[in-house]
Each structure stands twice: as structure tokens, then as C-alpha cells.
Design a protein around this nucleic acid. Structure first.
Lengths: 167, 167
DNA sequence: GCTTTACCTCAACCATACTCGAGGTCTTAC
DNA sequence: GTAAGACCTCGAGTATGGTTGAGGTAAAGC
């Protein structure tokens, strides 16, 4: 743990600028996580005279969005891509954020659809015995394989992304 | 790639026993993956006189089940736990497999529920501005936090498991 | 002014889930 | 019998998403 104090913090210096500790506390993430996000280009900061990171309040929403996107299963690299489309010059508007959410919403829909399909197939198939043969939809998702030799092939190799991976 | 030949294989030796290559081809996984699963206790083999792995046909269903469980987001360690409850002494029955699927079905339901909830909240919240305040359900899932200082805390730290992780 | 707390960098480490390569052995086909 | 191909072990490497610790500096509180 890098700093686990719980008393309310005063804002660093200028009232407007947030220190890394401020951001960590308000967002509920570790300081090391913010450093990490910065190395990945997910958030940005400038330095004060003493080389300490300072953030605008925008970063709070950014981190919130990062965490939400992660919950939907989006990997950090993709979140970074999306965040990179936000304007540097001005504070992002509600419309900017909505654009991101629509993008992830579609991916989330897809994941939900896939999982639901899997659930239905699981109910029908896993205990029934068809798993042992090539026509089972669970073992042969998408019905891609013809008759290659005997037996089933090609179990889903859809890598669930995870770390926060998982389908 | 450890062996990418595509011609149909004859069964190794005794007709009943499968070699690691047989299993890899029939399951659509790499030989190295089977070695890896064995180190994790997910599958088992015995050795022939020349120290090569031999498998019963049960392993085909085991691997199929492993792959399906992974698609539902279950980490290997948990799959191993579940598979360990299967009887060693006899070939697992349909009822044995059904028991496993019921267990994972519940987890899958939960994941679908969570993602659906997230989707609904995403629609309502991300673009609206409430993300910046503490009452947003997306930022404060479960409504756990009272009024701790100012600002929001505790973004979801539900680590989506995965490798094939991800919620 | 002095002490405590926060912050800095950089390298190493953790977990998950595998893959790859080296160096050597076994089996199978001809 | 011999050569090709399959198999063996073990260690290292890949990718994701961080966490931990060492060694040192800055800022804040009294």
C-alpha cells in the first residue's frame, strides 16, 4: 500500500490542480495505478516545480471511464485508443463521453449476446452427451468445420481477454 | 507450432490409448497446452514404456469442458477444482458433467446479469454528467459508500478474471 | 528548523494462460 | 536399419494489468 490514510485531503497547491494522491483517493485506485496509466498514455499530467505530478479535474472522469470500460471487458490498449480521440484542447464534453460509451456499448452488447448464447447451449449440451460428437454447437461454435477425419475439432479459441479477459 | 500436420492420425498403439498429438488434433489445442494443463492438474495421463504420455478418451471431453468453461469466464484454477470432484475410479457420467455445468451456469448467469446492469447504466450515465458526482451508480456500484469527504470513491475493483478473464 | 508524509524513478515481481526453443529420445514408415 | 517425425523436459519468453521495494527528493505540519 502506498498511502492508506483516510482523512480528507486538501487540494494540492493551486486549488485547481490535483496531486497524484488526491486523484488516487478520489478515484479509489492506487497511486501506482495512476503512474501505470500514465506510462500507457491513458491519463496525462504536468509537473510542478518540485517534479511532482499535477492533474486537472478532468482526470477524475477519465479514470472513472477507464474503470467502467474495464468492467465491460475492454482492454487498456483499446481504452487508450478511445481516450486518444478526445480533444486535448478543451475539457471533454458530455457528447465526447457519449461517443465513447456508444462504442463500448456495442462491444458490451456483443459480449452479452455471446455469453447468453453460451448459457443456452450449456443448458442443452453439457450433460447430454453430444459434447462427445462433432455436431455439438458448444464444441463447434459457428458451425465452421466440415468433416475433418473423425471426432471433433477446434474448440473455441476465442481468447477471452482478460486479465480482464474472459469472453 | 509444435506439429501442424493435418492428415488423419491413427490411434497410438493400443487402439484405446491416445497420444498427446492425437488429443491435440482432436481437441484443436496445442500439444504444449496439454502439457500445461497436466502441470495444472486439469488432465491426467500415464506413460508408455518410452515415457510418452497416453490418455484415455475421457480426456477429450475434459478438454472440451475446460474450453467451454473458459468461455464462460471461469479461470483454470477454478476449473481444476471442479474437475477434481469428478470420480477417478470410473468414467464420468452425464450426471457428473451436468453437475459441473450447473455450477458454471450460475456464475455465467451472474456475469450476464452484471454486464446487463452495466450496459443499462452505461446508457443512462456516461454521457449525462452524473459520472462526476458521487451518486452515480456506475461509479458507486452497490451504493456502498456513504459520504466520505467530497467527491466519489471506490470505482468497481471487481477484477475481471481472465487471461480469459474480464468480466 | 525539523520531522513526517507524500512523492519521484526504475527495476523487479505477481498472477494468468500459454508459447517457444534447445537439446535429446522414441516410434513409425519405408 | 535408417531417417523423419513425434515426443520428452526444462527454462525462458509473451501479453495483460498491475504491485512492491529501494534509494532519494519535496512539501506540509508543528
Amino acid at each position: 500500500m502506498e498511502s492508506s490514510n483516510t482523512r480528507p485531503r486538501r487540494l494540492a497547491a493551486t486549488k485547481q490542480a490535483l496531486s497524484v494522491g488526491d486523484v488516487a483517493q478520489r478515484c479509489g485506485v492506487a497511486v501506482s495505478t495512476l503512474h501505470f496509466y500514465e506510462t500507457k498514455g491513458l491519463i496525462h499530467s504536468w509537473r510542478n516545480a518540485g517534479n511532482q505530478r499535477r492533474y486537472t479535474r478532468d482526470v477524475l472522469r477519465r479514470v472513472a471511464v477507464i474503470k467502467i470500460a474495464q468492467r465491460t471487458g475492454v482492454p487498456l490498449a483499446e481504452i487508450q485508443q478511445a481516450l486518444a480521440t478526445l480533444p486535448d484542447s478543451r475539457t471533454p464534453t458530455a457528447a465526447d463521453w457519449r461517443r465513447l460509451s456508444e462504442r463500448w456499448r456495442a462491444a458490451l452488447d456483443e459480449r452479452i449476446t455471446q455469453l447468453t448464447l453460451l448459457r443456452d447451449q450449456l443448458d442443452g449440451c453439457i450433460g447430454c452427451g453430444c459434447l462427445s460428437l462433432s455436431q455439438c454447437p458448444l464444441r463447434n461454435p459457428g458451425d465452421v468445420l466440415g468433416g475433418e477425419g473423425e471426432g471433433a475439432q477446434r474448440l473455441g479459441s476465442d481468447h477471452v481477454s482478460n486479465g480482464s479477459t474472459a469472453v
